[in-house]
């Protein structure tokens, strides 16, 4: 029995690392965007388009890292479109986000047809578990560099938002556009840049899906991960470090269903498969009432007004 528990825990650790990266990258991108006072619900489009572009680029050039870069750029272009349109008066940023989710997904499916079949070069993992003789530990600790990119980015964002002049400008823009303007900050430009950078990260999240895990391009690749990651930002209360925990939790609970079945515990697998959603909802219900939550939300955000 303890063996079985060890297996499930190992699977959840491995799952947390494997599955969390796209959630983390999208959530960090969204955090940056929302900190500037705008919400971009369309990062699912960036994720899917990024996944397709990364796979196609890796296939055509033979370099998966070039694919990662191309995915980021594609995500950036898409989000720059969002940022540019949202500066027009009377345009609703949530609606534009959903529009871009549609457009990004549509373009990815449209141009992605020829890349469903071929096998492209994929990203390698770093074997951090080589010290252990246990194959499961070794497997769980095979980590893709993009996971560390995500972790590093989280720390960097957290530090930047807190301690730098840029961070201050972004937070001010997000909390009160009027006072930012009074300080001579171009609110639209800050938001455009924050949204575009956020789109870049989300695109890279897509590259992780198609080039590492599960490591293939197909139209059902994402199953709404980008949309969920955007929601996780609210769960993580706009804090990049908490985004890491949220993504890890989400990844680990996602591994719960298959892991339990692999030790022969499979009654009610639909609910184990839905564990990430149930768990997130329960935690939100238990924690959201705190006064802190309302305090941490960027004041300009349409979704929390």
């Amino acid at each position: 029995m303890s063996d079985a528990i060890f297996m499930v825990l190992m699977a959840m650790l491995g799952g947390a690392i494997r599955v969390s990266t796209p959630f983390l990258l999208v959530a960090l991108g969204e955090t940056l965007t929302e900190k500037s006072g705008r919400i971009n619900l369309g990062l699912e489009g960036n994720l899917v388009l990024g996944a397709m572009i990364a796979y196609a680029t890796s296939y055509s050039t033979g370099s998966p890292w070039l694919g990662v870069l191309a995915a980021g750029l594609a995500g950036m272009v898409l989000s720059a479109g969002h940022g540019w349109i949202c500066k027009l008066p009377k345009v609703n940023d949530i609606a534009v986000g959903i529009a871009f989710m549609n457009l990004g997904t549509g373009l990815a499916f449209f141009f992605g047809k020829p890349f469903i079949q071929p096998t492209a070069p994929r990203l390698d993992a770093i074997a951090l578990g080589a010290w252990s003789s246990n194959p499961q530990v070794q497997q769980a600790l095979k980590v893709n560099p993009l996971f560390f990119v995500g972790l590093g980015l989280a720390v960097l964002l957290w530090w930047m938002l807190k301690n730098t002049r840029w961070g201050l400008i972004i937070r001010m823009t997000g909390d009160s556009a009027a006072s930012a303007r009074a300080m001579g900050v171009s609110v639209d430009r800050v938001r455009l840049l924050a949204t575009s950078a956020g789109g870049f990260f989300a695109g890279i999240g897509g590259a992780f899906l198609s080039l590492y895990y599960p490591g293939s391009w197909s139209e059902s690749l994402s199953s709404g991960q980008g949309l969920m990651a955007v929601a996780l930002v609210i769960f993580a209360r706009w804090n990049p470090i908490r985004c890491v925990w949220a993504a890890l939790l989400f990844g680990a609970s996602g591994a719960l269903g298959p892991a339990l079945q692999s030790i022969g515990f499979s009654k009610g697998y639909y609910f184990f498969n839905a564990a990430p959603y149930i768990l997130t909802l329960v935690i939100m219900v238990l924690s959201a009432r705190s006064q802190k939550a309302a305090h941490e939300a960027p004041g300009e955000l349409s979704i929390v007004k």
Partner: peptide, 17 residues
Amino acid sequence: WSMPVREAEATNALIDA
């Protein structure tokens, strides 16, 4: 019928078993 991430997770779980 089609959910690539979970299929990959399931494959890994079976191999781990």
